[in-house]
Design a protein around this nucleic acid. Structure first.
Lengths: 259, 259
DNA sequence: ATAATTATTGCACGATATGAAATAACCATT
DNA sequence: AATGGTTATTTCATATCGTGCAATAATTAT
């Protein structure tokens, strides 16, 4: 299989535009991607010509362009995972009170695809579109756990595992043991692995081919996690995740062939 | 200036994914873009590797992938035109009762960037993300009218002007006259040019450099357009469009330099 | 006004994207 | 299940095209 390198580079350039960094200049992108400045400049010109990005005139910085409004609408429109999952997620939030989030795999990160806010004032709040690491936090570990061993190895060996908190697992073997445990249990619980004081309870969502499609998380401040809440929430998250898996299978089976 | 052709092709491929056609196969894209099947296949493989698209396994069709969730979130997040315009659009809708829509230029089409629903049960309803022609409907003609003559010429000469209804202008000279009139008036009114029985009243939105940024439209069924409603709505649309122009200028001036 | 950083362009080289044809995979029909 | 037809992918040779370097131009900072 042969891939078109300049297209990969263009995607890498566009991937630099994030919630945290929605406005970028040529050099910044050059640093972030490791691409030559000339190359970045030419890629940006091309993307600007095609209206994928636009230049803000006083500053000269670039941001995503009108083309993405089209794609954004397409994404929101059809049977896609977030829309499918939202009602189930709201039910889950109502039963456990805490924030419910949905994560998908994005290169070797995870991205928050959907978030339903907690009823508490003091709570975990994750914006949709936020990109987070895979190796820490139960939602990341669940995504990792159900990859094929080769896919997983590619990630874990790719670069060092960054330490976010004292609880972050940075040892590959230790991480693999955790993942094995997750596969046995069918869920994951983490406490303060990425952000101090926060817990998550997470279960996997599978597509019709039993491949991992997303992870569903309930998360909040650790001090609200009683022994009974833990048990109840594990049960509830697993149930909700299964429900979404079923919806997803049905939805995908619908657009067979010429439909 | 030198553009990277394979990237342009990739964008063309992705542009095939629309509200009407969210699921596509290689041949379909090949026909839509005029690209060789091998090329399309390779572009799709590359985009799939980068998770810009994903293949639905039972059917083999492709759809937009998880990467677009990231970009979609970035788009929604920062000071972008639709979010800026929405409150003003809602006010306008409340004052005139009819659907209010916002259109931007997308290659040589227009795309609905934002829509606020009419209060009436029988009304015009335009989905966000819908792609429509430029040469018919007041919202398209306003976008055309304020392009530079060379930009405009590029579009009008590009290919024949499709006739949607008996009212559609298909003669380039006649169209130019209409556009001149629009520039003099500062607004446009159309009746049944694209869809029979529908009218639109549209005013231009400019950015801080006085370039056309979007067009703002009030539209509904012609039978509700009395002489007084027409006058009132023209006034209201122009006022709202100006308001949005001001907001847009302010917003763009904010992210100067290193902010 | 000057220096420093950043963006763009020309050029020549080497990588690489391309179409045509072949092969493989897939689907529909009987 | 088997066949024929459509669609997807891969191979291969060729010329195109994207690339980095260095120079220039444009911006920004001091």
């Amino acid at each position: 299989m042969t891939f078109i390198k300049s297209i990969e580079k263009a995607v890498d350039v566009l991937s630099c535009f994030t919630l945290e960094n929605p406005l970028l200049r040529v050099v910044e992108i050059s640093h972030l991607t490791g691409l030559n400045q000339s190359t970045v400049s030419r890629i940006l010109s091309t993307l600007a010509k095609k209206q994928c990005i636009e230049q803000i005139v006083p500053s000269g910085k670039y941001r995503l362009g009108i083309k993405f409004h089209q794609w954004s609408a397409v994404l929101r429109h059809k049977t896609n995972l977030p829309d499918l999952a939202r009602p189930v997620m709201e039910k889950l939030r109502d039963s456990c009170g805490e924030e419910v989030t949905l994560y998908g795999l994005d290169e070797n990160r995870r991205i928050c695809l959907e978030a339903v806010k907690s009823h508490f004032d003091l709570a975990k709040v994750t914006p949709v579109g936020k990109i987070l690491p895979l190796h820490c936090g139960a939602a990341g570990k669940v995504l990792l756990a159900y990859l094929t061993p080769s896919e997983r190895k590619k990630f874990i060996s790719s670069k060092g595992l960054e330490k976010f908190t004292p609880e972050t697992i940075v040892n590959p073997e230790e991480l693999e043991m955790h993942l094995e445990k997750i596969r046995q249990d069918g869920y994951a619980v983490s406490q303060g692995e990425r952000e101090k004081g926060a817990y998550s309870i997470v279960a996997p969502i599978f597509n019709q081919n039993k491949k991992i499609a997303a992870s569903l998380s309930v998360s909040g401040p650790i001090f609200r996690l009683s022994e009974t809440a833990l048990k109840k929430n594990i049960e509830a998250v697993q149930h909700a995740a299964n429900e979404i898996s079923v919806l997803l299978s049905k939805s995908n089976l619908n657009h067979r062939q010429n439909s």
